[in-house]
Design a protein around this nucleic acid. Structure first.
Lengths: 327, 327
DNA sequence: CTGTTAGCGCCTTCAC
DNA sequence: GTGAAGGCGCTAACAG
């Protein structure tokens, strides 16, 4: 900036004013400064600027557990969309479900004076997300609820979606509906299990343990589990699958067995209508989680760290909608 | 830091030394400082630190055209993986294929003193990516080649993949193979078209214009275009589709028509074996593009902006592999 | 309308 | 082993 000032024959202050745009500067002076700027290819150092202005970095941190999962990629996409509308940038961090990495990432983002944080917490120990640990950096939790802290949160209607999809299977005439899902230690795993259970109870059907398979399944292991469920005379005639990996695995099982079973599922599945299996899906837009989370965050963010809007923690639940595909 | 110093009864300088770890500080002093730090919940301001050290920001910018496309999401994932291994953070920017947004984003990243940039250029005007415009920030281009500038680049073997998939269709007995693809203005569109063309020529088949449909298709419009191609007695008996959106659209067309046509495709398609259409796919791992791009970038990045490794521009081509699925 | 002074939070250099 | 001075690049606040 000094160089520009020298070349334009003015002081650094004048250059600063011209670049800010709002200062009162003579037309000819302004022009000389602008010329010098473009001659020298000068670009203001935003880092120094933020430091002087006592501002945050203009960065919003997004910490997710597993970017390889398209779900989180979509979430990131939605968050980026909203964040950039506010002139902020998204910094992406992947924790691979490791608490230590989550802690490091969050610390780093706070040290960088991020304007806000969107975190998919990897566990129930969330002390590193307390306002004290965060230096009061605004925080929004996504996909999983807060534990021991207060924070704005965006969740999916795991319970309602699972219940609705299961209820639809029952309405279609199935009286033995299995459950293929995540371990109950996972929030979504527990909620979706509850939804399945409720739908059956409400239909006067007593859920049976032998209809249930829960584990950290991928597509391949889910297929095997689904086969166990379906490959017996008195087994379920339909299975509710708690996420799209499981749904795909179960589809393979149904096709492989030549079974007439119907499937329920959580999350959208691409080309569901081409898979040749009757499917009832409770789906939603993962990007919407990112968008909502970012909007909640933007409400709390302020250029002046001293004057951040406060208020009680808010919770947004993304509804799911049912889509039915015939074989 | 002053507060910490006061509480520990030392000067700010001593605190700085303790925090850096390498300075010579008395054991009892160090302990007092550490205590004060944790009492106050103090965290060093990385922004100020970088400013003073004349360092870059520790940020790597990733600018893509369309994050909604899972392809770019995977690319981001791969880049994040490598970047974080180097202790850097990934900043994500989406341009929505708008040159102006790309220019703004790149400028902003440079102003923030990003350590490096990975860009999927949205057009053939790349002057805003010249070393001068970038203030010599290291740059790697991904998925599309440089135009009028020099830069490390990571590309997919668009030509080879398209040729191999098409050749396989020919080897399977098809003599009339259609092409469903992107406009030739797109680099990948042109390359994949060339691949298709070459495979036919090499097999002694003269490609015909009536076998070709090119446009900015989505799944729905691709289906219509595929129907045009397939729904005539003397039309193609197989179609090569230049990306996975098009492949899915064409699948719908084949299924809808009850056609016996086979398809070739570029990019992986999930559950390809369940779609009920004979498919030959040239696929690769999109995350690998991100990883390779990030590695090339890391080679050029240096903590000291004055001493960045230089060298001639390098180009990495990601190979594709052929996978065949029967109906 | 423009320049001078001072300082954001940190660290290098040089004293002690 | 520790502290004081000075400055990284920028901009409020106050001159003039």
């Amino acid at each position: 900036m000094r160089d520009v000032a020298a070349r334009a024959g003015v002081s650094a202050m004048t250059v600063s004013r011209v670049l800010k745009g709002s200062g009162r500067v003579g037309d000819s002076t302004r022009q000389r400064v602008l010329d010098a700027v473009s001659d020298l290819g000068y670009r203001r150092n935003e880092t120094a600027r933020n430091l002087r202005l006592g501002r945050q970095s203009g960065l919003v941190g997004l910490v997710v557990t597993n970017l390889a999962n398209p779900f989180y990629a979509q979430l990131a996409l939605g968050a980026e969309e909203v964040v950039q509308e506010h002139g902020l940038r998204l910094v992406l961090g992947n924790t691979a479900e490791q608490l230590a990495r989550e802690q490091d990432l969050v610390q780093d983002l706070v040290s960088r004076r991020a304007n806000g944080l969107i975190v998919v917490p990897s566990g129930s120990d969330q002390q590193h997300l307390s306002p004290a640990a965060l230096d009061s950096t605004p925080l929004v939790l996504a996909a999983r609820p807060p534990a021991g802290i207060e924070a704005d949160t965006v969740l999916v209607d795991d319970f309602g979606g699972a219940r609705a999809a299961t209820a639809r299977l029952v309405a279609d005439g199935h009286t033995r509906v299995g459950f293929l899902g995540n371990p109950p230690t996972l929030f979504t795993g527990a909620e979706r299990f509850r939804g399945w259970w409720s739908a059956l109870e409400e239909a006067g059907i007593q859920p049976r343990d032998t209809w249930v398979r829960r584990g950290p399944y991928d597509v391949v292991t889910a297929e095997a589990a689904a086969r166990e469920l379906l490959d017996r005379a008195d087994g379920p005639t339909a299975v509710f699958c708690a996420n799209n990996r499981l749904t795909l695995g179960a589809c393979r099982a149904v096709r492989g067995l030549g079974s007439a079973a119907a499937l329920g599922g959580f999350d959208a599945v691409e080309s569901a209508d081409l898979l040749g299996v009757p499917l009832t899906l409770a789906s939603y837009d993962p990007a919407e989680i990112g968008r909502r989370a970012a909007r909640l965050l933007m409400d709390r963010v302020s250029d002046d760290p001293g004057a951040r809007p406060t208020g009680p923690p808010r919770r947004t639940i993304i509804p799911t909608s049912l889509a039915e595909f015939t074989a």
